[in-house]
Design a protein around this nucleic acid. Structure first.
Length: 425
RNA sequence: GGAGAGGUCGCAUAGUGGUCUAGUGCGCCGCACUCGAAAUGCGGUAAGGGGCAACUCUUCGAGGGUUCGAAUCCCUCCCUCUCCGCCA
């Protein structure tokens, strides 16, 4: 959601921002038309209601004074008014419903610094860390390593659930469990985030708050009338403070949450489908920040540092790119992707997206803060990023640290979590 | 899942059809008193919408209904607590 006043005051600015994202800006005119009609209707309705309230109050007074006849006369007076109010109310309600639904379809505007571009090809390289590991022979992809060492059982995953559901077995299961334990410890004990363990099922209101609904219903698993499996811990964690007013002294709030993530990703079939590259259920540690508006861009840089510190601790080569306006998606203002080097697949793979949503989600979820006692509440800025996604980290580790003898030599920091220094030993 | 009790402006409570534009206490803010503080006194203390403004509308868990008028009466739902059942 955007600021209504901004759209009214400077529609050209909003149109330009939407156009930079290569999205349809006609929604601005749609909004302005309905908004004008709604405001007119609201004003008329309020006038009628005020009149009705005045009469009702006078009836009370007349009865109190024992003037029954006059009270009855006043009652008769309200019949037409009542009818008019009912009509105006229906009209106003329809317009308001329309306006809200239009409002929820608005994409966020890109930050001025977000580079222009249409596709991921125009994303901008920011920096890299480490170097691609050298191998005597061509490195194997993780699905081969996993099969050799019996870390994964994808056929049985397909049998018991369906394609895109991975079963981790033996040391693979242990590594998977080690990864999220390590990452939660890392983000809480080292980087100072507060740990949250959220429900994996949320209601519609929460999904609207983060911007997953109403637009992306087809990406979600629905488990009941009003309940959905979460596509990321971002949804429950961001909504912790839905409809709340935070104290400025408590900002910035830094939260880290482990969760399972469930995504149908109906449109994504056929791309990156091998092994663990794109699966319907996966584990992830998510970082969420609630900040004052003036702090959010500095916090975005910190968020990226916290996410990449995991890769550094593991000794994995990665690069950071800044997404261009065409690739950033509807919700974000500015976004960096962390891409880990995957030698077996011979590609960089997105392992974290660190995004500043500014007030876009805060408006949808009604999350505000007060600068000082008595001050008017303002919307917070909300940021989030993976810290990190487990399957691609799993695959990057087994591919990057595969040994000539077929084993995988684990990074130092993981050894106590996995209980061994080597997979396949 | 069943039975009972309950959900009121940060917290605690009052309010059972019409000066409720929701009272009171605590907390908080301001002022006074004080060298300063405590205590005390006075005043102020919810959010959102429309309007240039005066002003006005909405919100007493949510949504419907009755009524000229609903925090208050009726219906449905949600949540919390107690007990029962079931269960890891």
């Amino acid at each position: 959601m955007l600021d209504r006043d901004l759209i009214r005051r400077d529609p050209d600015f909003v149109r330009a921002g939407i156009a930079r994202k290569h999205m349809d800006a006609s929604i601005v005119d749609e909004f302005l038309t309905v908004d004008q009609a709604w405001r007119t209707a609201t004003t008329h309705l309020d006038e009628k209601k005020a009149e009705s309230n005045r009469i009702s109050k006078s009836i009370g007074q007349l009865i109190g004074q024992g003037k029954k006849d006059e009270a009855e006369a006043a009652k008769a007076q309200t019949a037409d008014l009542k009818k008019a109010i009912a009509e105006l109310e229906a009209q106003e309600r329809n317009l308001e419903t329309d306006l809200k639904s239009i409002e929820l379809q608005f994409p966020n505007l890109p930050h001025a610094s977000t580079p222009d571009g249409e596709t991921e090809n125009e994303n901008v390289f920011v920096r890299e860390w480490g170097a691609k590991p050298e191998f005597a022979d061509a490195p194997k992809p993780h699905w081969e390593i996993a099969e050799n060492l019996q870390l994964l059982d994808l056929p049985r995953g397909a049998k018991i659930t369906g394609s895109g559901f991975a079963v981790y077995t033996g040391q693979g299961a242990r590594l998977q469990r080690a990864l999220f334990n390590f990452m939660v410890d890392h983000q809480t004990l080292r980087n100072g985030y507060r740990e949250i363990y959220p429900p994996f099922i949320v209601n519609r209101a929460s999904l609207i708050g983060t911007g997953n609904l109403p637009k992306f219903e087809e990406d979600l698993y629905k488990v009941d009338d009003d309940l959905y499996l979460i596509p990321t811990a971002e949804v429950p964690v961001t909504n912790l403070y839905r409809d709340e007013i935070l104290d400025a002294a408590d900002l910035t709030v830094n939260l880290a949450a482990f969760s399972g993530c469930f995504r149908k990703e109906a449109g994504a079939a056929g791309k990156d489908t091998r092994g663990l590259l794109r699966i319907h259920q996966f584990d992830k540690v998510e970082l969420v920040k609630f900040t004052k508006p003036e702090d959010s861009y500095a916090e975005l840089e910190l968020l990226v540092k916290d996410a990449e510190s995991v890769l550094q601790s593991l000794g994995l080569h990665y690069r950071i790119v800044e997404l261009c306006t065409g690739d950033i998606g509807a919700k974000g203002s500015k976004c960096y992707d962390l891409e880990v080097w995957s030698p077996g697949v011979d590609r960089y793979l997105e392992i974290s997206s660190c995004t500043n949503f500014e007030a876009y989600q805060a408006r949808r979820a009604n999350i505000r803060f007060r600068r000082e006692q008595g001050a008017k509440p303002e919307h917070v800025h909300i940021l989030n990023g993976s810290g990190l996604a487990c399957p691609r980290l799993f695959s990057a580790i087994v591919e990057s640290f595969q040994q000539p003898d077929g084993t995988v030599l684990l990074p130092e920091v993981l050894r106590s979590y996995v209980g061994t220094d080597r997979l396949g030993a």
